[in-house]
Simulated scan of single mutants.
Amino acid sequence: MINFRGTVLSLHPLFVIVMLASVMTGRFFELLTLFAIVFIHELGHAGAALAMGFKVRSIQMLPFGGVAVIEDDRRMNAAREIIIALAGPLQNVIMIGIALLCQAAGWGDGPFLSYIIQGNLIIALFNLLPVLPLDGGKVLQALISLFVPYHATLLWTSRAGLICSLLMIGYGLVPILSNEGVKLNLLMIGLFLAYSNYEDHRNIQYRFIRFLVNRSQIQEHQQEGMGTAQPIVADSSKPLDDIMRLFKREKYHLIYVMNRQGSLMAVVPEQHVISSYFASSRPPWYA
């Protein structure tokens, strides 16, 4: 584990085991090349985040890739999240371009350059799959959050990721039916993605609470950047958490509270609803 200017660089224990196994099987150089490709991929995410003023907490190398943990403060929006997510595959495209130029110029070892091109292509395409926590899944989640309430976005993207992961596991086990060996690589990747999406689904409420905390700290000039306030019409008896689950990531909301007769009781800014929820007090329209 290395701490470089506040960013922790680490290897997952399973990754260390895979590296040791590659030494014993004579595939260490190939794995080291893939390690470098994945690390540059993750540096792309980290570089894009740092360029936009976000803190990169850690970069961890996993057996099937890597993960850059970026601090999610109230400045993170869908557009920035998409840029950060795509910055990783962009590094793979750049490396493929450099390798192709070297091949055209006759520089370097041909088979090694072909291996670099193939490795970058596989890693880029794999990461662009629309499954969390891969880059494609993050892009898909950010796009959906533009049109769907944020809580529903978290819920359904994690469920979709879990379903896709289970399908991948099933596909990896299909050869058993014809007395063939399992597709071990696909099975292991599917298990890893299934576990990641299961953990993501378990932590939805925590992520949503963090989203609300960031929303409660939005300043007036940031509200103006969200455009015209989007109204939410709610009955006075509607629970606060049900109202907040209608909040969209890129919108600022005003809650129009109606009584049973359909008359308007109050117009409440979203921050008042959030602060009332965290204070566990009566709804703000009774204040």
Rank of each mutant, 00 (worst) to 15 (best):
L184P: 00
E180F: 09
M188H: 00
S237Y: 14
G170Y: 04
L193R: 04
L162Q: 10
S216Y: 03
L155G: 06
Y150K: 12
V233M: 13
M168G: 04
F192S: 02
I218P: 00
V148T: 14
L166Y: 03
R207A: 15
D200R: 09
G181Q: 07
Y171F: 14
Q219D: 08
A160L: 14
I232V: 13
L162P: 00
R215A: 11
G181Y: 04
V233N: 08
Q217Y: 11
H221C: 06
V233R: 09
Q230V: 11
S165T: 03
I209G: 03
L155E: 08
I204D: 01
T153D: 00
Q230G: 05
L212A: 12
L155Y: 09
E224S: 14
T153E: 04
G227P: 02
Y195N: 05
G190Y: 03
G227C: 10
N197I: 06
S178Y: 05
I144F: 02
V174H: 10
M188C: 13
G172W: 01
L173F: 10
H221V: 14
I144K: 05
E180K: 14
P175A: 11
H221I: 13
I189E: 01
Q205D: 15
L154D: 00
E199I: 08
L191P: 00
H201F: 13
Q141T: 15
S216H: 06
Q222A: 15
Q205F: 05
L212N: 06
P175F: 10
A234D: 04
F211A: 12
Q217V: 08
G225M: 15
A234K: 09
S165G: 05
G172R: 03
T228D: 04
S145P: 02
L143A: 15
S145I: 11
S236E: 15
A194M: 07
Y195C: 03
E224A: 13
E180V: 06
T157R: 01
L184E: 06
L191N: 03
V182K: 09
L212C: 06
G170L: 12
M168Y: 01
L146H: 07
P231E: 15
P149K: 08
T157D: 00
I218S: 09
T157M: 12
L191R: 02
D200G: 15
V174R: 11
W156M: 11
L177P: 01
L143P: 01
T157C: 07
H151I: 06
N179E: 10
N214P: 00
C164D: 00
L173R: 08
A234G: 09
S196D: 01
G190W: 02
N214L: 05
